[in-house]
């Protein structure tokens, strides 16, 4: 499609000495103007995918296009239209906050005057003007991350890549970064991010590709993915023993149970259309002779989707 900023075709990466591919015949299309998320646990292949798209990982086979340009054939051209925020703080320690932006502009071919103006403008926009002359060592984790985003969009890239952008950030900085990304996207910035935080994918992304073992297991909007579970409520019951017994009892006696799962002392049931779910659960448990320690109901999340697809939790 003409509006696709990123296209991959049967993209595969096998690292030397590894038997299993890190990315296995991946077909993706990212549309202009959307926030696209690659969600999955460590080792799912999302960082490798982002690495290929940002020209740092050489694919074993298949093809990847960014802004219509082949990343293997013309990496230097692809870099002209990509902005990258890595997981780590990669700010230049030898330069001040302002210089980190200014020299980025010079690297991307902007003249001294343009680069100065854009550096000033971005520090203002990102509320970092006060720190312009400071060493990057003086920045907090959240501010450093903001500066990296400012640096990444300095040259007005067609795609902004973020690799686990909020890993290691405090909750407040994480929310601030989400707001910032939403604002950038609102202004037309295409964003591709990798994350293993389901809330992040849910909150930020227009579409999410759930990945595991180098494959995309599901790809849709967060809402559609959640609807695909068939449940509208997730019931979590903590017991001290007899978890399996309770799971069986719930599946038989509660009505509308789509699936159940026992992990240690926690029984989870995905339920559709449950009225008075809490009292009825207690009744079913008592009838089965199982003591309930704790009980919670929640809406399905992307975590639920992931569990349904893989049989394991995202955080494992």
């Amino acid at each position: 499609m003409a509006d696709d900023v990123i296209v991959t075709e049967a993209l595969t990466k096998v690292y030397p000495g590894m038997d299993v591919p890190a990315v296995d015949h991946l077909d993706l299309a990212v549309r202009a103007g959307e926030v696209f998320g690659l969600l999955g646990p460590n080792g799912a292949g999302k960082t490798t995918t982002a690495g290929i798209l940002t020209t740092r990982v050489v694919p074993t086979s298949g093809r990847a296009l960014v802004a219509g340009i082949d990343v293997v054939a013309h990496p230097a051209l692809v870099k002209q239209v990509s902005g990258i925020v890595s997981q780590q703080n990669t700010l230049d320690r030898q330069l001040s906050v302002w210089e980190n932006l200014y020299f980025h502009g010079r690297l991307f071919g902007m003249g001294g005057r343009d680069s100065r103006a854009r550096a000033d403008e971005l520090l203002e926009t990102f509320s970092l003007s006060k720190w312009a002359q400071a060493s990057v060592y003086a920045l907090s984790g959240g501010m450093a991350q903001r500066l990296m985003v400012a640096r990444a969009i300095f040259h007005r890239p067609a795609v902004l890549f973020l690799d686990e952008p909020t890993a290691g950030l405090d909750p407040q900085s994480r929310l601030a970064l989400w707001d910032l990304l939403a604002e950038l996207n609102g202004a037309g910035q295409t964003v591709v991010l990798t994350t293993h935080y389901m809330e992040e994918a849910d909150q930020l992304c227009d579409r999410v590709a759930i990945m595991d073992h180098g494959h995309v297991l599901a790809l849709d909007t967060p809402d559609a993915l959640k609807r695909s579970t068939g449940a509208d409520t997730i019931l979590t019951v903590k017991v001290d023993r007899d978890g399996e017994k309770l799971a069986t009892a719930l599946a038989g006696g509660l009505g509308g149970v789509v699936s159940t799962r026992v992990a240690g002392d926690v029984v989870t049931a995905q339920v559709r259309g449950g009225e008075r779910l809490v009292p009825r659960t207690v009744e079913v448990a008592e009838a089965a002779g199982v003591a309930v320690l704790d009980l919670a109901v929640a809406e399905p999340s992307l975590e639920t989707v992931f569990i349904n697809l893989t049989g394991k939790e995202l955080r494992e």
Binding site: V81, H155, E183
Partner: peptide, 10 residues
């Protein structure tokens, strides 16, 4: 940030 000017192509 109203709208961004973006270089869609090199």
């Amino acid at each position: 940030m109203t709208t961004l000017r973006i270089e869609a192509h090199p």
